[in-house]
Protein backbone atom coordinates (compact mmCIF):
# COMPACT_ATOMS: atom_id res chain seq x y z
CA UNK A 1 0.00 0.00 0.00
CA UNK A 2 2.72 2.45 1.01
CA UNK A 3 4.60 1.90 -2.21
CA UNK A 4 1.49 2.31 -4.26
CA UNK A 5 0.63 5.44 -2.35
CA UNK A 6 4.12 6.77 -2.93
CA UNK A 7 3.62 6.43 -6.64
CA UNK A 8 0.23 8.09 -6.47
CA UNK A 9 1.70 10.93 -4.46
CA UNK A 10 4.51 11.29 -6.95
CA UNK A 11 1.95 11.58 -9.70
CA UNK A 12 0.11 14.23 -7.74
CA UNK A 13 3.33 16.13 -7.40
CA UNK A 14 4.04 15.80 -11.08
CA UNK A 15 0.60 17.02 -12.07
CA UNK A 16 0.72 19.84 -9.59
CA UNK A 17 4.15 20.88 -10.74
CA UNK A 18 3.06 20.90 -14.32
CA UNK A 19 0.15 23.14 -13.44
CA UNK A 20 2.40 25.45 -11.49
CA UNK A 21 4.68 25.80 -14.46
CA UNK A 22 1.88 27.17 -16.60
CA UNK A 23 1.28 30.86 -16.89
CA UNK A 24 -2.29 31.17 -15.74
CA UNK A 25 -2.69 32.16 -12.12
CA UNK A 26 -5.77 30.05 -11.58
CA UNK A 27 -4.03 26.95 -12.88
CA UNK A 28 -1.17 27.67 -10.56
CA UNK A 29 -3.48 27.81 -7.61
CA UNK A 30 -5.09 24.56 -8.67
CA UNK A 31 -1.64 23.07 -8.95
CA UNK A 32 -0.78 24.03 -5.41
CA UNK A 33 -3.99 22.53 -4.21
CA UNK A 34 -3.20 19.21 -5.88
CA UNK A 35 0.30 19.24 -4.45
CA UNK A 36 -1.14 19.94 -1.04
CA UNK A 37 -3.24 16.79 -1.33
CA UNK A 38 -0.10 14.95 -2.26
CA UNK A 39 1.70 16.35 0.76
CA UNK A 40 -1.04 15.39 3.16
CA UNK A 41 -1.27 11.90 1.83
CA UNK A 42 2.48 11.66 2.00
CA UNK A 43 2.59 12.53 5.67
CA UNK A 44 -0.09 10.01 6.34
CA UNK A 45 1.64 7.33 4.32
CA UNK A 46 4.94 8.03 5.95
CA UNK A 47 3.31 7.55 9.33
CA UNK A 48 2.50 4.01 8.31
CA UNK A 49 -0.98 3.10 7.19
CA UNK A 50 -3.56 0.71 8.49
CA UNK A 51 -1.50 -0.44 11.42
CA UNK A 52 -4.51 -0.52 13.66
CA UNK A 53 -7.84 1.10 14.36
CA UNK A 54 -8.64 4.77 14.40
CA UNK A 55 -6.85 6.57 17.22
CA UNK A 56 -9.88 6.70 19.43
CA UNK A 57 -9.75 5.13 22.85
CA UNK A 58 -12.75 3.40 24.27
CA UNK A 59 -13.30 1.06 21.38
CA UNK A 60 -12.05 -2.46 21.44
CA UNK A 61 -8.99 -1.72 19.44
CA UNK A 62 -5.68 -2.56 21.02
CA UNK A 63 -3.43 -1.08 18.39
CA UNK A 64 -3.90 2.27 16.84
CA UNK A 65 -2.81 3.96 13.73
CA UNK A 66 -0.10 6.48 14.47
CA UNK A 67 -1.97 9.59 15.59
CA UNK A 68 0.85 12.09 15.23
CA UNK A 69 0.82 12.28 11.44
CA UNK A 70 -2.90 12.82 11.62
CA UNK A 71 -2.48 15.71 13.98
CA UNK A 72 0.22 17.13 11.78
CA UNK A 73 -1.89 16.83 8.68
CA UNK A 74 -4.76 18.51 10.43
CA UNK A 75 -2.60 21.47 11.20
CA UNK A 76 -1.17 21.40 7.72
CA UNK A 77 -4.58 21.27 6.11
CA UNK A 78 -5.72 24.29 8.00
CA UNK A 79 -2.63 26.26 7.23
CA UNK A 80 -2.81 25.32 3.59
CA UNK A 81 -6.40 26.30 3.51
CA UNK A 82 -5.53 29.64 4.98
CA UNK A 83 -2.70 30.22 2.57
CA UNK A 84 -4.79 29.16 -0.39
CA UNK A 85 -7.53 31.55 0.61
CA UNK A 86 -5.07 34.38 0.82
CA UNK A 87 -3.41 33.41 -2.42
CA UNK A 88 -6.73 33.25 -4.17
CA UNK A 89 -7.75 36.69 -3.06
CA UNK A 90 -4.31 38.01 -3.81
CA UNK A 91 -4.50 36.63 -7.32
CA UNK A 92 -7.79 38.17 -8.07
CA UNK A 93 -6.71 41.49 -6.67
CA UNK A 94 -3.60 41.24 -8.77
CA UNK A 95 -5.71 40.44 -11.78
CA UNK A 96 -7.95 43.40 -11.15
CA UNK A 97 -5.13 45.84 -10.60
CA UNK A 98 -2.60 44.62 -13.11
CA UNK A 99 -5.15 43.52 -15.62
CA UNK A 100 -3.77 40.14 -16.47
CA UNK A 101 -3.68 36.72 -14.97
CA UNK A 102 -0.69 35.75 -17.02
CA UNK A 103 2.33 35.52 -14.79
CA UNK A 104 4.61 36.10 -17.74
CA UNK A 105 3.14 39.56 -17.97
CA UNK A 106 3.83 40.19 -14.31
CA UNK A 107 7.57 40.25 -14.71
CA UNK A 108 7.96 43.82 -13.70
CA UNK A 109 11.14 44.39 -15.61
CA UNK A 110 9.58 47.36 -17.25
CA UNK A 111 10.04 50.06 -14.70
CA UNK A 112 7.13 51.88 -13.32
Amino acid sequence: METLMSILIGLFFAIGTYLILTKTLLRIILGTSIISHGVHLLILTMGGVKAGGPPLLGFEEITFTDPIPQALILTAIVINFATTALFLVLSYRAYKVIGTDNTEKMRGNEDE
Binding site: I43, G48, L72, F87, A94, T103
Partner: peptide, 28 residues
Protein backbone atom coordinates in the same frame (compact mmCIF):
# COMPACT_ATOMS: atom_id res chain seq x y z
CA UNK B 1 3.21 45.01 -4.39
CA UNK B 2 0.56 42.74 -5.80
CA UNK B 3 2.75 41.59 -8.60
CA UNK B 4 5.60 40.68 -6.33
CA UNK B 5 3.32 39.25 -3.68
CA UNK B 6 2.00 36.72 -6.13
CA UNK B 7 5.49 35.44 -6.81
CA UNK B 8 6.51 35.57 -3.21
CA UNK B 9 3.46 33.73 -1.98
CA UNK B 10 3.70 31.00 -4.56
CA UNK B 11 7.35 30.36 -3.96
CA UNK B 12 6.89 30.23 -0.25
CA UNK B 13 3.87 28.04 -0.64
CA UNK B 14 6.01 25.56 -2.52
CA UNK B 15 8.70 25.76 0.10
CA UNK B 16 6.13 25.07 2.79
CA UNK B 17 5.01 22.00 0.92
CA UNK B 18 8.54 20.83 0.61
CA UNK B 19 9.04 21.41 4.30
CA UNK B 20 6.13 19.14 5.02
CA UNK B 21 7.52 16.57 2.63
CA UNK B 22 10.72 16.66 4.58
CA UNK B 23 8.87 16.30 7.84
CA UNK B 24 7.07 13.30 6.43
CA UNK B 25 10.27 11.61 5.36
CA UNK B 26 12.06 12.20 8.58
CA UNK B 27 9.12 11.03 10.58
CA UNK B 28 9.01 7.86 8.59
Amino acid sequence: QLRESVKYVLINLISSFLFLVGVAYIYA
